[in-house]
Design a protein around this nucleic acid. Sequence first.
RNA 1: GGGUCGAUAGCUCAGCCGGUAGAGCAGCGGACUUUUAAUCCGUUGGUCGCGAGUUCGAAUCUCGCUCGACCCA
Length: 507
Amino acid sequence: MTTESILPQSEMAVHPQDENQIITERRNKLAAIRKAGIAFPNDFDRTHLAGDLHANFGQLTTEELEVQQVKVAVGGRMMLKRVMGKASFATLQDMSGRIQLFISNSDIGEEAHGAFKHYDLGDILGAIGVLFRTKTGELSVRVTQVRLLTKSLRPLPEKFHGLADQEQKYRQRYLDLITNEDARRVFVTRTKIIQAIREFFINEGYLEVETPMMHSIPGGASAKPFETHHNALDMQMFLRIAPELYLKRLVVGGFEKVFEINRNFRNEGLSTRHNPEFTMLEFYEAYRDYNYLMGFTEKLLREVAQKVLGTTLISYQGKELDLGLPFHRLTMVQAIQKYHPQFTTEQLSDRDFVLAELQDLKAKHRPEDTLGGLQLSLFEELSETLLFEPTFIIDYPVEVSPLARSSDANPLITERFELFVLGRELANGFSELNDAEDQEARFDAQVVAKEAGDEEAMFKDNDYIRALEYGLPPTAGEGIGIDRLIMMLTDSNSIRDVILFPQMRPE
RNA sequence: GGGUCGAUAGCUCAGCCGGUAGAGCAGCGGACUUUUAAUCCGUUGGUCGCGAGUUCGAAUCUCGCUCGACCCA
């Protein structure tokens, strides 16, 4: 804390607008506590976590516990309270789980027990006592001292149903976390997934780096950026839409295997699959190509699932898939034909035919595109959402892949893939374009598109061209959407369920 | 942007046929020394999202708006 409290001992002046009877009652209790002494003490020394007590002493019998006399000091939020005259039970919740307290006149005296009876659900308590097992067998603390450490002024959601309102779960995530074990599980799993990814890359000899979040030229993806302004330099800046161009500069600099896990920002709509800021993994490895990346990606996803979930079998929204099985690899044309075998390869290789189909389907497309671009539009319309099992789609057209190396066999397509799982794009990787002159020509084409009105077209980044002119070794690089990966591994239906504080409209 | 559903006590919800606003939990008071969403008795608590309209009368019907969830683009 940087400021001292200047509030008087009573009469808190400014109260929120949603005061009610329960809050008033609790404020009155707090006022009485203030009068009696220190209302927010910070001298309680917690010695044990609930989860550790269950893990370490949960197997001991009543008699063994009686002999050992394990003395503990536990702290946490009171979630349940059952007062029964001369004795009470309460359940404390800490970061590791829950532990039951037994409080009785005979252990702590009538006065202390009486004070406890006025504690409210949600209050933060510290309790000292000895472990024992109740008549029904539950490991509990026979309390010899219990203290109120933090008064909770607002009532918790209903103890059985918890918080049901989705909006409130997102806006007041702390309430969701207090009351919903499943929410806690998801976010703990999120952290474990990211740790597993990090370990995987470190074991592979990669260097983790951090590159700028504020760019003077937004690059590395086709997306609308957030704009901001740097006062001292008096210049427009952008929150990054991707770290790609900086990571490849590092490969130029000799960091031949780099990765970054960090936030990207895209100024687009909100949905169950899009949050304006989201977490991206990007990695680059020199002397590799996109074929290597596909195998590498399979290995990465398999190992992360195995490490975090203990299995490669995923259950998602009632459907099963096994990351342990080889991922499918299809060209764009094959992916269309997989679900629409009535189209022949000849037809799908005929630009006029594909264009006519798109128009018949009223599908989103750009009529001026080449065959490859139109095939991509048809794929997105007909097949993308059906690709439930992990599938690499290859042969992306050059006009939508301005940073990817062209195929030596066909300069109109690139050495690029996207990975689809659960009907969603999860990853995007390619052999990097390391021909500086080709890159400059691709940027120039993007500038033409931008001037023609394409808001998502890329800016030309002359410093990046200059870096390439020093020589980028042959390199493969990839981005994986971490939030979507976490959705898959935690069986979450909305990106908001895997982001602690998702973007919401102002209240 | 389009569609569906929703917004009633602090929380979870009922109230559908238009006629004085309900339950459980939480709170307050009481009983209860082994409870497990404790139980039992009593009790406080509401601008029914906002704004119009229809009507003698609207939480309820109509229209608009705001916010949210889900689906689609």
